[in-house]
């Protein structure tokens, strides 16, 4: 077994755009669930809207890359308002079902042949990179060291994603420690109590939903930046994986979602490389096909999610006293 290659691939996942996309989306969920107590199970829908919003505006309406991103943000705001206006009054678990259904509706509408001219239906969207790459200030060439050796385009994508991430982390941090964040956390604990103090709970929840949704949409944009928009990505499983990453790190923290997403992807990358290798070269997994071996890692995700929620609901970075679950 080539351990050097496996470790290199594993370490490389830390700087992968997919990891950044996960960090962004889980920060959005942290805003929704960790701070405001909103059970959003439609984060994959926000990501899809971000990715499609960007790709469609660049491809079909010839907008520049930054215009496409503004469209993504605007679309996420509209989606959040459409979703939130009627549902933010609902009980937590009802909100979960509504958001998961809304994300699925969005996905089906992106997938259907009916809007093929815009969405590319099952084939998705690709070839929208020119404008973004033209803005790349890095001269042509290959840079970096060890596993982190990339072309100028790959670096540009990563640097841009990191910049977005920095802004989002700052926003979440600044908001969570302000009086606004105090109101939001109060709503998470008991919205009636906050209402009785004269705060417009609905408006605060809507603001939190929009902000978290925009973070999610930026996650979708970053996911789409290096390659293509593929409709099979934005399924409910994606939502569940992001939840896993969030709860792993700690829902009510700023650092937790970052840590959780990175651990999630490093583990995924490690298992993706190591399990098939174990199956091929004998050992404990000798009897498995390589496909079975790689399926194992998703089984582990499921088991991991159960164990976290049962035994460490505050996550790795969370305060032990600070369990964020509504009883």
């Amino acid at each position: 077994m080539d351990w050097i290659q496996i470790l290199s691939n594993t370490v490389e996942s830390i700087l992968s755009p997919v990891t950044f996309a996960f960090v962004l989306a889980s920060l959005g969920l942290a805003m929704h669930f960790g701070f405001a107590g909103l059970l959003n199970f439609g984060i994959a829908g926000f990501m899809a809207i971000g990715a499609y919003g960007y790709a469609i505006s660049v491809l079909r309406f010839d907008l520049p890359w930054w215009g496409g991103m503004l469209v993504s943000i605007a679309a996420a705001i509209v989606f959040a308002i459409l979703l939130g206006a009627p549902t933010l009054r609902l009980r937590g678990d009802y909100l979960a079902i509504v958001t998961i259904a809304a994300a699925e509706i969005a996905r089906l509408l992106f997938l259907t042949n009916t809007f093929d001219d815009f969405t590319g239906s099952a084939s998705g969207l690709f070839g929208y990179h020119d404008s973004f790459r033209a803005a790349n200030p890095i001269p042509e060439g290959t840079y970096g060291f060890g596993p982190f050796t990339y072309s100028e385009t790959d670096w540009w994508v990563r640097i841009f994603a990191l910049a977005v991430l920095a802004v989002v982390i700052w926003l979440l941090w600044a908001l969570s420690r302000s009086p606004w964040g105090r109101v939001i956390k109060g709503i998470r604990e008991d919205e009636d109590a906050v209402r009785a103090l004269g705060k417009n709970v609905f408006a605060y929840k809507m603001q939190a939903l929009i902000i978290g949704g925009v973070f999610g949409a930026m996650g979708g944009v970053v996911y789409a930046l290096p390659s293509a928009v593929n409709p099979t990505v934005y399924v409910t499983s994606l939502t569940f994986f992001i939840w896993t990453a969030l709860l792993l790190g700690g829902a009510a923290t700023v650092f937790g979602p970052v840590l959780g997403s990175i651990i999630f992807w490093v583990l995924q990358a490690f298992l993706t490389n190591v399990l098939p290798a174990l199956a091929q070269e004998g050992g404990i997994l000798e009897s498995l096909t390589s496909q079975q071996a790689s399926t194992l890692r998703f089984i582990l995700v499921g088991i991991g999610l159960m164990l976290i929620v049962i035994y460490r609901p505050q996550g790795i970075a969370g305060d032990k006293r600070e369990l964020t679950f509504v009883k």
Partner: peptide
């Protein structure tokens, strides 16, 4: 509000806080 400190609970009661507006915060 169990997971806010006692002081945070109190501060939440104050009205017309500039820092409770999303942009001001």
């Amino acid at each position: 509000l169990s997971l806010l400190t006692v002081l945070e609970n109190m501060k939440l009661g104050a009205t017309d806080q500039a820092g409770e507006k999303i942009l001001g915060s």
